[in-house]
Structures are given as structure tokens and as C-alpha cells.
């Protein structure tokens, strides 16, 4: 049982003598989180980078073969003078992402390897997006790649807590939820309030529908009802931060179900965002819990000590 308000200063470990008092917002932003959770999240993030550039979002490298006439620099590229892609540059950033992410998964040199991974992955995304089409689901992942290394050393079985870890996790959570809210802002900005009554999802089904969704084209009110529900859920998404921990996790589960349904209907998944949402979950308890379940399945006596959670529940929002 925990909520945002559970992270009040008197719920945290006592501050060292001489430290100024902490405001509520500061205590919430810099909560003392389990370092092991950051280690697990980093593992997921770096594993995702490998899968992403090799399989999920690997095609950006073909821009190296496109004529530079199609290069349409983004503001970032204009500022930094980033040139059009070449086959060599595209492959270097792609395989650099793989190499640094694999190295970062070891947990060694977390800052250097983490930021090297971030640089390669961001550049590879830039190459993918600087030819006229931006995939709008990938910006939030930058926050994870750039801020998770700031935590420094963290081990999968780390029993320490850390405010730097709490900050990084909170920033990733905030960014993940901001994507929902800002997606609603974009719908209102570009589609207007009439977006909910439009045929936007119907068009998506026409373009990329599956057997799961194509029958819905004959029931257009259903797709519009979905649009009402989606916009409402996106606008209300920040409420997650004032919910009790148990409900926070249920809401995260509901978002995962939403993304699963979206994938089934129009084969679109916001993969990096799905990784970001892991920041809400007690990842460091997953493996011990799975071990216990496995032991139980095998009929073993579960060691009493193993029942002890690595990190106490109730303080880890």
C-alpha cells in the first residue's frame, strides 16, 4: 500500500544531519528507490536497444542507400550539422548501438557505456527520421537512455536504495505518462475536438487492418466509441501519480492491454514506450518471485529466507 503521498519525508530514511528539509515535491521526485530496480530496468532497456536496431526498427539503415536529395534535416541535425546518411554511418550507429548496449548489460561502466549506447541509438533514430517521416513513439525512450546512466553503479541483487535511482525512475515514469497526455494534446491541436467523431481509426484499419479489426469497419460507431475512450484515458493519464500503488500497477496493466489490442487491430506497437512503462513495476522482485513459483511447481520446500522480498513492499512507488 503506497501512493505518491507515501513518499513523504518521514517515510524515507532519515536525512543526514545538516541537510535542509525537503519539500513534498522534492521528496516525491527524489524518492529513495531500490537500486536493483534500476539495474533491472537498465537490463530491459539495453536488451530492447539490441532487439530494436536489429529487428524492430532496423530499416532506418536503408536510408544510407537513399539519395541525399531525400534527406530532410531535423532541427537537431541543423544545429549540429548532421550530414545525410551513408551506408557506413547508418551501419556504424546501428552496430554501435548493439555493441555498447550489450556491454552496458554487463553493468560495468554504466555511465560511459550507457551514454555511448544513447548516442548511437539516438543518431540511428535520427537517420531513420530525417527523410520525411518521424515515428512519434520514440522520443520518450531518449529520457530512459540519457537518465538511467546518471544513477551510476547498480546491481541486480543490490540491496541499497538511492535517491538518484528514485529520480531516474520517476523521470522515466513521468515521460512515459506524458506521452499519453501529450498525444491527447496533439489530437486536440491537429484534429480538433471533433477528432472523437472522425474516421481516424477507421482509416488506420483500412490501411493496416487485420482479421481482428476489419469487421469493425462495418460497425463505425464502435471505432468512434473507441476514440472517445482513448482520448479520455489519455487526458486522465496523469491521475496515475496520485493513485495507490496497487491501482497504479492495475492502470499500467490496462495500458499494456490497450497496446496489445492496438497491435492486434492495426499491427502498430509503441515498443520503446512499452519498455518505459516497466519503470512502474517492482522489477527486482520478479526474478525471486519467479524462482519461488518455479520451486513450488517442482514441489520443493521454499526456503523461508527466499520468501523475504529483496526490497520491502510499500515504500517503492
Amino acid at each position: 500500500m503506497s501512493s505518491a503521498t507515501d513518499h513523504r519525508p518521514d517515510d524515507a530514511s532519515p536525512a543526514p544531519a545538516g541537510r535542509p528539509g525537503r519539500g513534498r515535491l522534492s521528496a516525491w521526485l527524489f524518492w529513495d528507490a531500490p537500486l536493483a530496480r534500476v539495474a533491472w530496468l537498465r537490463l530491459a532497456v539495453y536488451a530492447f536497444v539490441v532487439v530494436d536496431v536489429l529487428w524492430l526498427h532496423s530499416t532506418g539503415r536503408y536510408h544510407g542507400a537513399a539519395d541525399p536529395v531525400w534527406y530532410s534535416p531535423l532541427v537537431l541535425g541543423d544545429w549540429l550539422g548532421v550530414p545525410a546518411a551513408t551506408v557506413l554511418l547508418a551501419e556504424a550507429t546501428r552496430w554501435g548501438s548493439v555493441a555498447f548496449a550489450l556491454a552496458a548489460m554487463t553493468g560495468r561502466a554504466p555511465r560511459m557505456l550507457g551514454w555511448a549506447t544513447a548516442l548511437c541509438w539516438i543518431w540511428f533514430q535520427y537517420i531513420a527520421f530525417a527523410y520525411g517521416k518521424v515515428d512519434h513513439d520514440r522520443a520518450d525512450f531518449l529520457v530512459a537512455l540519457l537518465l538511467l546512466p546518471t544513477v551510476g553503479a547498480a546491481h541486480l541483487s543490490d540491496r541499497r536504495r538511492s535517491e538518484a535511482a528514485g529520480f531516474a525512475l520517476r523521470a522515466v515514469q513521468l515521460m512515459a505518462i506524458a506521452t499519453y497526455f501529450l498525444a491527447a494534446v496533439a489530437k486536440i491541436r491537429f484534429g480538433g475536438w471533433e477528432w472523437v467523431q472522425s474516421a481516424t481509426i477507421a482509416r488506420a484499419v483500412v490501411r493496416r487492418g487485420t482479421v481482428v479489426s476489419e469487421w469493425m469497419l462495418d460497425v463505425p460507431w464502435l471505432l468512434q466509441a473507441f476514440q472517445w475512450g482513448l482520448l479520455g484515458a489519455e487526458l486522465l493519464s496523469p491521475v496515475i501519480f496520485v493513485l495507490a500503488l496497487r491501482w497504479q500497477r492495475r492502470v499500467v496493466g490496462a495500458w499494456y492491454l490497450f497496446h496489445l489490442a492496438t497491435y492486434a487491430a492495426i499491427t502498430i506497437a509503441f515498443w520503446p514506450h512499452l519498455v518505459m512503462m516497466l519503470a512502474f513495476l517492482p522489477l527486482e522482485r520478479a526474478l525471486p518471485a519467479a524462482r519461488r513459483r518455479w520451486d513450488r511447481l517442482r514441489g520443493r520446500e521454499v526456503d523461508r529466507g527466499a520468501r523475504q522480498p529483496l526490497v520491502a513492499p510499500g515504500r517503492d512507488g
Binding site: S72, P73, L74, V75, L76, I122, Y126, F129, K133, V134, H136, D137, R138, A139, L142, T179, L182, A183, V185, A186, K187, R189, F190, G191, G192, E194, W195, Q197, S198, A199, T200, I201, A202, R203, A204, P220, I268
Partner: peptide, 25 residues
């Protein structure tokens, strides 16, 4: 999100499926 466009990436608006399409277009 309020005034940017795709060229602002990574600060571009999250505009996936954000346009309003007429049901009769």
C-alpha cells in the same frame, strides 16, 4: 506539443493518429 512540428524531434508533437478524418472523405 503546442507549437512544434515533426522537425522538432525529439520534441516533436505526439501526433500519431491525431488528424481528424471525415467519415465521408
Amino acid at each position: 506539443s503546442l507549437v512544434g512540428d515533426d522537425h522538432w524531434w525529439p520534441f516533436s508533437p505526439w501526433r500519431m493518429f491525431s488528424t481528424s478524418s471525415s467519415p465521408d472523405g
